[in-house]
Computed example of a mutant assay.
Amino acid sequence: MSFHDVRFPLDIAFGSAGGPGFRVDVVTLASGHEERNALWAHPRHRYDVGLGLRSDDDLHELIAFFKARRGRLHGFRFRDWQDWKSCPPLRPPAATDQAIGTGDGETTGFPLSKLYASGAQSYRRLIRRPVAGTVEVALDGVAVAALDVAVDHDTGLVTFAAPPAAGAIVTAGFEFDVPVRFDVEQLSLSLADFRAGQVPSIPLIEVFS
């Protein structure tokens, strides 16, 4: 996958709409009962950034960004302002936010992830595009020095210089972006329409590397 390690303009992203979606096949039986089958194990996020345009300058910035990505050709980073940290929205990330693995005395690499829990059910999301400079790691609640751990910001893999001891709980805190691309071949923009209050639809869709 061709990916540009640049982030979509934050101000425009702040006004966007969208979120995760699962693909589920629903069959209604003659009795009226349903059979439901999950076709995707993981959700795919979609957004519409047209809602975030507020000025002529925003339009100019969007056009430049679209052209530099060659439309749908290259992926890029996008901040989902509804979900972009390892913790609740009003808290700063901390090294103990998310459990990402348990040491066995041999393994050195642990992928970043975020757990979403509701009642007895939960879903764990792999974090593939952490934000540089925001990842903090701890072992059994004790912060690990930056020199003792490396973070791959293209995959979300955390690698220790020495394997954590068997039974040690590995936790992490971080900010993250969603890898996306434009899901439209051409921008259909009219400055006159925009100034008249008509908002264009500019869809983005999550990409998986």
Rank of each mutant, 00 (worst) to 15 (best):
Leu73His: 14
Thr96Gly: 08
Ser188Ile: 10
Gly71Glu: 02
Thr96Val: 01
Thr102Asn: 02
Gly75Phe: 07
Arg7Gly: 03
Asp97Pro: 01
Asp177Gly: 03
Val178Lys: 11
Gly71Lys: 13
Phe76Asp: 00
Ala132Val: 15
Val151Thr: 06
Ile63Met: 14
Ala64Leu: 03
Gln98Asp: 04
Gly21Lys: 11
Ala17Gly: 04
Glu106Pro: 01
Leu139Asn: 09
Leu112Gln: 03
Leu191Ala: 02
Phe174Val: 13
Ile100Asp: 02
Pro9Ser: 07
His153Cys: 08
Gly50Trp: 06
Gly167His: 02
Arg72Leu: 04
Glu136Met: 14
Arg69Tyr: 10
Pro9Phe: 05
Ala161Lys: 11
Thr155Phe: 01
Val26Met: 11
Phe76Val: 07
Ala99Thr: 07
Ile127Ala: 15
Ala138Phe: 12
Trp84Gly: 08
Ala99Asp: 00
Cys87Ser: 12
Glu61Arg: 11
Pro111Gln: 11
Ser209His: 07
Ala162Gln: 06
His33Lys: 14
Lys67His: 09
Asn37His: 04
Arg181Val: 09
Leu59His: 13
Thr96Glu: 00
His42Ala: 06
Gln121Leu: 12
Val207Asp: 08
His60Glu: 00
Asp193His: 04
Ala13Gly: 07
Thr96His: 01
Ile100Thr: 05
Phe160Arg: 00
Leu147Cys: 07
Arg195His: 03
Ser118Gln: 07
Gly19Leu: 15
Ile63Glu: 13
Val131Met: 09
Arg125Gly: 09
Ala30Ser: 06
Tyr116Gly: 05
Gln82Trp: 09
His153Ile: 08
Ala41Cys: 08
Ser113Arg: 00
Ser118Asn: 10
Asn37Ala: 07
Thr134Asp: 13
Leu126Lys: 09
Ala138Val: 12
Ser209Phe: 03
Asn37Gly: 05
Phe65Asp: 15
Ile127Trp: 12
Asp152Glu: 03
Tyr116His: 09
Val170Lys: 02
Ala143Asp: 09
Val184Ala: 15
Leu147Ala: 11
Arg181Glu: 02
Val26Asp: 11
Asp11Phe: 05
Arg124Ile: 14
Ile169Gln: 11
Val24Thr: 01
His45Gly: 12
Leu51Asn: 15
Glu206Arg: 12
Ala120Met: 11
Glu34Cys: 08
Pro163Glu: 02
Leu53Asn: 12
Phe208Ile: 12
Ala138Ile: 09
His42Tyr: 04
Asp25Trp: 14
Ile100His: 00
